[in-house]
């Protein structure tokens, strides 16, 4: 007997509202909605420039039901630090969450200096990086978090080079090196894991960092319906390890129940199309080696310890 539940409408319950102008199938809009609804209404959001800022606040409308600020690409963490300091001065720091959010470009490249300063000064802020692996808003340019062999408009495929020649910057490890008390990664394919990590992060005092893999149908060149499946395959193939690091110690990893070859993750994406030509065979083997190295490094396979 199917269960029957009371009528409800996201127009009433969601703090992130529909009518934003993200592309169909956008992983980032899903990620932002999950983060905000997990954080609750007593939250102040500071946004770096990027897709998220542009599609949620098309003048004169806003998709946010909480206070939301945007200043520039490079200073989101600095603005967030100021908001937190002001709350402290007003004696309201304990019951208001400050969340700074940005894309991978705003986090790993342009806003990296101010993010590092925010970590170092120890502000009580959660930083959320929506990682879609390139500058999608400005036309799919390569960023510091673009993975190896991905084709973007600034790392195109030609006769000499097959896509991006460098690997993904290990941003979670950089955050851990700052002595940040809580660092985690997750993807939009696991909403319960995402919500749990946001709530856990907000319960901890000090700077926190969460990186969320959000597939982008436009930049990755996949069918809009496959957003969730690709986010899941990125984890199951070992390409994107989902981990949790508390006070410098790896405390949990999402284990892979059935290991998937990277082909399954790469094939639906146009940015990796060249890996399935005779010329790309070597690169494909290198991507598989990178995934295997992740599995080895974090112990993603095998029985749970303890």
């Amino acid at each position: 007997m199917p269960k029957v539940i009371a009528p409800r409408d996201p127009k009433e319950w969601s703090l992130f509202t529909a009518g934003h102008t993200a592309c169909a199938g956008c992983g980032q809009s899903l990620g932002a909605r999950l983060v905000l609804n997990a954080a609750g209404p007593r939250t102040i959001l500071v946004n770096a420039t990027g897709c998220l800022e542009v599609f949620t606040t098309r003048f004169p409308s806003s998709a946010w039901r909480v206070p939301w600020l945007h200043s520039l690409f490079e200073n989101a963490s600095a603005v967030g630090s100021g908001v937190e300091a002001a709350l402290k001065a007003l004696g309201k720091a304990d019951d208001v969450n400050v969340i700074v959010q940005g894309g991978d470009g705003g986090t790993a490249d342009i806003g990296f200096g101010s993010l590092s300063g925010m970590f170092e000064r120890g502000h009580n802020i959660l930083y959320v990086c929506y990682d879609n692996e390139a500058y999608m808003n400005t036309g799919i340019q390569r960023s510091g978090l673009t993975p190896f062999a991905a084709s973007t408009t600034t790392s195109p495929v030609g006769s000499e080079v097959l896509g991006n020649t460098t690997g993904k910057k290990d941003l979670p490890a950089i955050a851990v090196a700052h002595g940040v008390p809580y660092v985690a990664t997750t993807t939009v394919a696991y909403p319960k894991d995402l919500e749990k990590k946001v709530k856990k992060a907000l319960s901890i005092k000090g700077p926190k960092y969460i990186q969320i893999l959000v597939p982008c149908p436009l930049g990755w060149g996949h069918d809009t319906a496959l957003t969730i499946r690709l986010a899941r395959l990125a984890v199951q193939s070992g390409i994107f390890p989902v981990i949790e690091v508390e006070n410098g110690k790896l405390t949990s990893v999402m284990r892979i129940a059935r290991k998937v070859p990277v082909d399954e993750y790469l094939k639906p994406q146009a940015r990796f199309r060249h890996l399935f030509t005779p010329a790309g065979r070597e690169e494909l083997a290198r991507v598989q080696a990178l995934a295997d190295a992740n599995i080895e490094r974090f112990g993603l396979l095998g029985a749970r310890a303890g």
């Binding site: 009528p7 409408d9 996201p10 992130f16 529909a18 934003h20 199938g25 909605r33 957003t227 969730i228």
Partner: peptide, 30 residues
């Protein structure tokens, strides 16, 4: 999983879509 979000619960307790906002991405069907 709806990225809008525009999935609602209809009066019979079953899920349905708000066609005012649905962009037709197909994630729900997937």
């Amino acid at each position: 999983y709806c990225p809008e979000p525009c999935i609602l619960v209809a009066d019979d307790g079953k899920f349905d879509v708000d066609l005012d906002y649905c962009k037709g991405c197909g994630i729900c069907a997937e």
